[in-house]
Design a binder for these strands. Structure first.
Lengths: 200, 200
DNA sequence: ACGGCCTATGTCAGTAACTGTCATCACCGT
DNA sequence: ACGGTGATGACAGTTACTGACATAGGCCGT
């Protein structure tokens, strides 16, 4: 159990700061400690020093509390792809976008590991993760279309990129893994190119 | 006389037949008519002439009622890939598996259309659909490993195959579409090979 | 300094998804 | 005839989530 750090500025505000962050941290702790299903929203709120009602003001549901960071990831990816040199082929623009996400995640591997442990332990959380990845693919395809890529090619390149990300992430998060995320991304992308190559 | 049992009224068994099917049909109708969220399980059960409790004996939750067919689809795909000639490369074995699923779906395009309309209209249902596809990818990867394909190649080929299926299905289900599912699968797979090709 | 507004939070009641438990009762084999 | 079986109903309980209203410290204009 950890306690939220209270910052005393020159004046006390009415409430402890960062209610949303305290809720997210309390939720992750409890999901890891005793599992998602065995945790009630009331318990999360209580550990954060808040009430259940306030939890639902910050998060649309009990699952979303683990996914508030996905928006930043998505925006980073889209802007990276959008700003990539026009000379790059779609698949290479996507590769650059993946690398950008990697650097965001690699700094917090410990956190990613705990979070992923909670997610893989529960089906509802995995469903939510999948739809976040699908949203990522959709916006990625949009970024590709904005580069002039055709609709079908954009969708397929985006889906392929997300597949590479998913598999590389799985391998990176494996506790026995020692390799860098970026290396795993490149390896997975190379393997995808190999298995889809026209001729052996 | 035992044969005379037929007289009286018509021969009634204690319950109306196919409770599960009646529930599934009632649910689809209601989800399409007034939307998933605006439909209660009690209403579904009532339309099927049953009670809410019985609904949850056949389906684990309110979403699953639209996905009872996915197991058959998965088994068909796995057995097709498993039985495919050993000479085929992984990606071609997957292509054959996709074609097998296609023939199952193509016979019931009307039903698929109504079902998909309900699914795309609701996020929770889309989450459920995504995890079914993910399960499909997982078992597909298993079938590839059984063919001697390496772990990384199996996972990536499976994910790529499911991506092709998703995108071809989207296009096939589009009301303005006139083309065959099989043709769309082949087109999508060809486009995937094109966008991942090593050199332009 | 005063008063009023702003806003994050609390309180409370309500709905509906889902679960556990026990009751029912036609059917079936012996 | 009779007891077991299996599908269903009845009912109470938990919890995720929502809407409406209350509260109270901080802020701002006067």
């Amino acid at each position: 159990m950890s306690v939220a750090v209270i910052n005393y500025h020159h004046r006390m505000s009415r409430w402890q700061p960062d209610a949303q962050g305290r809720l997210a941290q309390a939720a992750l702790e409890l999901y890891v400690e005793r599992g998602y299903e065995q945790t009630t929203v009331a318990e999360i709120a209580s550990r954060a020093g808040l009430t259940e009602r306030t939890f639902f003001r910050y998060f649309t549901d009990k699952r979303e509390v683990l996914f508030s960071g996905s928006r930043a990831l998505q925006e980073l990816m889209v802007s990276t792809v959008t700003d990539a040199p026009n000379s790059l082929r779609p698949i290479d623009a996507v590769a650059i976008g993946l690398e950008a996400m990697v650097s965001l995640l690699q700094e917090r591997r410990e956190h990613s590991l705990r979070r992923q442990a909670a997610i893989v332990a529960n089906v509802e959380l995995r469903e939510r993760e999948l739809i976040k990845l699908a949203a990522l693919a959709t916006s990625l395809a949009g970024a590709l279309r904005a580069r002039g890529v055709g609709d079908l090619a954009a969708n397929l390149t985006a889906e392929a990129g997300i597949a590479v990300f998913k598999i590389a992430f799985e391998r990176w998060i494996d506790p026995t893994n020692e390799r860098g995320f970026s290396e795993l991304i490149r390896e997975s992308l190379a393997e995808l190119k190999a298995v889809t190559a026209e001729r052996a």
